[in-house]
């Protein structure tokens, strides 16, 4: 775990008293940074998301758990419009998008710039150096100069403990390192919210740990995060809130303690039992 210990230099706050951590955030009027209303998605006759309502507070870390096909990844991908929802609204900070209307490119841009995304399969750009992976969008999207972008990229690579990999290509890095680079890349646009789509599922357990350490540090710094995960340890110990999904619906949502230790719904109990029995 080269370097992954670095960020523990800041004493981790407990998830209960975690606050904004100094990150400036534009908030909706009622203190939510993400607000979904009646968000729906169908593939043919199959309902993938059934009118989802969700509020996420600034600095909140929300873990979404549930069986495969429950719609949790689709929900995440709808939030930044990688997947087009069929209906409902998405509000991030001051930007609201109504999925039932045609969306303008400029509106989509505003939405996506507020949201960083980390994929299960990393999706780094293999033909670019690690440094370029983290700096290119800063130049093309934010209009930063090359020097500015690379300086920021180096800061972020140091933050994820990979400054020494800056000149290499991603193919020369381990899966865990690649995912940490992907986190740095997403952070480079200074997002207000980070979405993680099963960030450790493609990694063996030890490499997963170094990614989870970076995510924990990010959570402790006050970043608002939505994490689709099968890592029950993360859901229980790092996230503030846990949401259980099944069949395109929210089964239950509550504090991580409550959902993980005293689930109210039979469906959640069954899922957690299955996970723990493995």
């Amino acid at each position: 775990m080269d370097g992954a210990v670095l960020y523990l230099a800041d004493p981790p706050q407990s998830s209960q008293d975690r606050s904004n951590g100094g990150i400036m955030m534009e908030q909706g009027s009622n203190g939510t940074v993400i607000r979904l209303r009646a968000l729906s998605k169908h593939f043919g006759a199959h309902t993938v998301l059934d009118a989802i309502d969700l509020d996420v507070r600034p600095g909140e870390v929300l873990a979404i758990i549930g069986p495969s096909g429950s719609g949790k990844s689709t929900l995440l991908r709808c939030i930044n419009y990688l997947e087009r929802p069929d209906g409902g609204t998405i509000t991030i900070g001051p930007t609201t998008i109504d999925a039932s209307m045609p969306v303008e490119r400029a509106e989509l841009s505003k939405l996506r710039r507020r949201v960083g995304m980390v994929f299960q399969s990393f999706n780094l750009f293999p033909h670019m150096t690690v440094l370029r992976n983290v700096s290119i969008a800063q130049e093309r999207v934010l209009g930063r100069s090359r020097a500015e972008a690379e300086e920021r990229a180096m800061q972020l690579l140091s933050r994820v403990g990979l400054a020494d990999k800056a000149g290499q290509h991603p193919g020369r890095c381990s899966g865990g390192q690649q995912q940490r680079i992907a986190i740095a890349r997403a952070l480079a646009l200074d997002p207000e919210v980070m979405l993680f789509d099963e960030p450790t599922s493609a990694l063996d357990p030890e490499l997963g740990l170094e990614v989870l350490a970076v995510m924990r540090e990010l959570a402790d710094s006050g970043m608002t995060m939505i994490v689709v995960t099968h890592e029950m340890g993360f859901a229980e110990n790092v996230s503030d809130t846990v949401m259980m999904m099944a069949d395109g619906d929210i089964v239950e949502k509550g504090s991580s303690n409550q959902v993980m230790r005293q689930p109210q719904q039979e469906r959640t109990k069954r899922f957690l039992r299955a996970v723990h029995d493995r």
Binding site: L82, L108, S121, F125, A186
Partner: peptide, 27 residues
Amino acid sequence: IHHGQWEAANALDLGRLSTVAFIIAPQ
């Protein structure tokens, strides 16, 4: 080219032209 490359570029809000010119075409 893996669709994940397009998705990553989209998520970073790289426009279509930048995505093709810097991400997709070189690969």
